[in-house]
Design a protein around this nucleic acid. Structure first.
Ligand SMILES: [Zn+2]
Ligand SMILES: [Zn+2]
Ligand SMILES: [Zn+2]
Ligand SMILES: [Zn+2]
Lengths: 154, 154
DNA sequence: CTTTTAATTGATATTGAGTATCAATAAGGA
DNA sequence: TCCTTATTGATACTCAATATCAATTAAAAG
């Protein structure tokens, strides 16, 4: 969750392991393995995916490390309605996500108008606004291309 | 998920059991019990809550009925990041939700500006937009009152 | 470079949400 | 009423995620 921010995007800590150290956590081999894997692959992922890809790291540790990264604000936890949440690296402080309904690819976007509208909703809504979340579901360009391709001879 | 709608709210089927019959499903005692309970209580709920409150209906049936209602568009399924999804009765066709972070109360809102911004984002975003979702997290008036109350002597 | 101390790990057991199975039951049309 | 088919629900199961706790390891201190 996120409070309504000023309109200048703050760039977040680049190295995930550093984000953990900044929180007073020790730099261990397990944590290095997890954070490196996340940084190298780049894509959004689920906890179980990470466990499969890092059999040398215990499942509990993978889950714990992910939780720490989310707490540190270095990872976004995206609710997926039917299934396990996905995680993606946070690059700017407040943003929203695009999710491709077909392949699950996750993108980050930030748009001042959206935030302006949020502020304007304060009047319309009962109670105090403490945060908001928004996801835009898309068919990504890659999937569009694949569809166009397949459509002709599938 | 929802496609970007015209700006006139369509009011949805009032009776949940009718929504099921409209889909060619039989009117059974189990389904009547589930839909009545949902309508009478009014609040958002989780599947497990319903199961507990309706011990005379089998757990599988509760889950199945909820799924039918969601498919029919009569219920919204709200992703809750740490925990089971919540369900709330849909009253107008396209809308978004307010969720009280403290008590979990769910509200529905609809605001033309939000939808207008969504349309304007089509240019900014790679790929085809197929839908969107938005939740505003609040502290509801009831909770604000409770906090003010408690603050003085807790 | 030890020693010491507390954080961390990970195998295992456990919880919890949700689904698959399938024989018994109930709806509703003929 | 009878017949056909949908529905039910007890049970077993899957899958994600967490709790437990003895063994390990990081890093601070000496
Ligand atoms: Zn993000
Ligand atoms: Zn925002
Ligand atoms: Zn709703
Ligand atoms: Zn909308």
């Amino acid at each position: 969750m996120c409070t309504i921010p000023a309109d200048t995007a703050q760039i977040i800590e680049t190295s995930l392991i550093t984000a953990l150290e900044d929180r007073g956590l020790r730099k261990t081999t397990a944590r290095a393995a997890v954070t490196q894997r996340i940084e190298l692959a780049g894509d959004a992922f689920t906890a179980e995916q990470l466990c499969r890809e890092l059999p040398e790291v215990g499942r509990a540790t993978v889950y714990r490390t992910i939780r720490h990264l989310v707490d540190a604000g270095a990872l976004c936890k995206l609710p997926i309605l039917d299934g396990a949440p996905m995680y993606s690296v946070a690059r700017v402080e407040h943003h929203h996500h695009t999710i491709c309904s077909r392949c699950g690819a996750v993108g980050e976007f930030r748009h001042s108008t959206v935030e302006r509208v949020m502020r304007s909703l304060e009047k319309e809504i009962d109670g105090d606004i403490v945060g908001h979340r928004m996801e835009i579901f898309i068919t990504c360009n890659q999937c569009l291309a694949a569809i166009a391709e397949g459509e002709s001879h599938d």
